[in-house]
């Protein structure tokens, strides 16, 4: 029982990382139906921004802020130069471009930062504490806390602000949103900004949680977060949060109770089963509402 609870705690902190990355996939997909394959690499950029910010001796809140701002700017820049010119091209063109950007960022990372993994400097050296029979580390609490705060903030933003309402309108009907006077380019920019900032935050948190970073670190989590977004229902924000958490939990529970070599196979397998029963994802819309 305590082993089970322990894996739940581990799963929630890992799931927080996936959820933060999955949000960017789902938001961008919801608005321009693009699977932004470079998103996992944005997360890597966040991790390295955090790495250098910590080495520069900045306090943690500032580290987190920088690790969100730099990826946000990069994300907006990529949209502006690579995706926007292809907005009205066939979808496959943008998809291939996204893969290209992803490979570019990864190889640039290898070139500039060297392919060798680096230890992520530890900011929180306090010993883990006991919660009953379960051990909880400060990075775990922090990862979950930061992710929760960001997700609550995002939910409020999407639900109550004018820009958030315009984003939802745009996701439902791009042309109608334009007729309302919504500037589509700037809303798409904001979407990339927010999604990339969340991925950047995930990058720092993962550095603190699993202190080893390298230029290719975005590939696997990016893929898993993408699957998480699909399982949650691509385009759905609560779906991405749920899918991410689920992915983290399945992964740690398989590691804990079955085997760590089978971890990814079982995690993906289970998610495929979910999709077999609910092809549009857990919280996905069955049909796209179009009049």
């Amino acid at each position: 029982m305590s082993e089970f609870l322990q894996q739940i705690i581990n799963g929630l902190s890992l799931g927080s990382i996936y959820a933060l990355i999955a949000l960017g996939y789902t938001m961008v997909y919801g608005i321009i139906q693009l699977i932004n394959f470079a998103h996992g690499d944005i997360y890597m950029v966040g991790a390295f921004t955090g790495y250098f910010a910590i080495l520069a001796g900045l306090p943690f809140p500032l580290v987190l802020l920088l690790a969100m701002v730099c990826p946000a700017i990069l994300g907006m820049f990529i949209e502006r130069v690579a995706y926007r010119p292809l907005r009205y091209s066939p979808r496959i063109t943008a998809l291939i471009t996204a893969i290209g950007i992803s490979l570019f960022l990864e190889n640039l990372g290898i070139l500039v930062l060297s392919p060798d993994p680096r230890p992520f400097p530890q900011v929180f050296t306090n010993p883990p504490f006991q919660l009953g029979q379960v051990t909880v580390s400060i990075p775990q609490v922090l990862t979950f806390g930061v992710a929760l705060a960001l997700m609550v903030g995002l939910t409020f933003f999407i639900r109550y602000t004018k820009t958030g309402k315009a984003m939802r309108a745009l996701a439902q009907d791009l042309e109608a949103a334009q007729l309302m006077g919504v500037n589509v380019d700037s809303i798409i920019s904001v979407t990339f900004m927010i999604g990339s900032a969340l991925a950047g935050a995930a990058g720092v948190m993962v550095g603190i949680l699993i202190p080893r970073i390298e230029p290719l670190m975005g590939i696997m989590p990016g893929l898993k977060a993408f699957v998480a977004a699909v399982v949650g229902g691509i385009g759905s924000i609560p779906g991405a949060m749920l899918g991410g958490m689920l992915m983290g939990l399945v992964e740690t529970l398989t590691t804990g109770f079955i085997s760590s070599t089978w971890r990814d196979a079982i995690a993906f397998g289970l998610l495929i089963v979910i999709l077999l029963f609910k092809p549009s994802g857990i919280l996905g819309k069955n049909v796209r509402e179009k009049v």
Partner: peptide
């Protein structure tokens, strides 16, 4: 299109094209 709206032209499109997953009030606010 956003500039055309700000100049004072609005359109009620064919097939209504309301935002189905938003409330009536939110549609009006948009």
């Amino acid at each position: 299109s956003y500039e055309i709206v700000s100049l004072g032209i609005s359109q009620v499109p064919e097939g209504r094209r309301i935002f189905p997953r938003q409330s009536v009030l939110e549609n009006l606010e948009l």
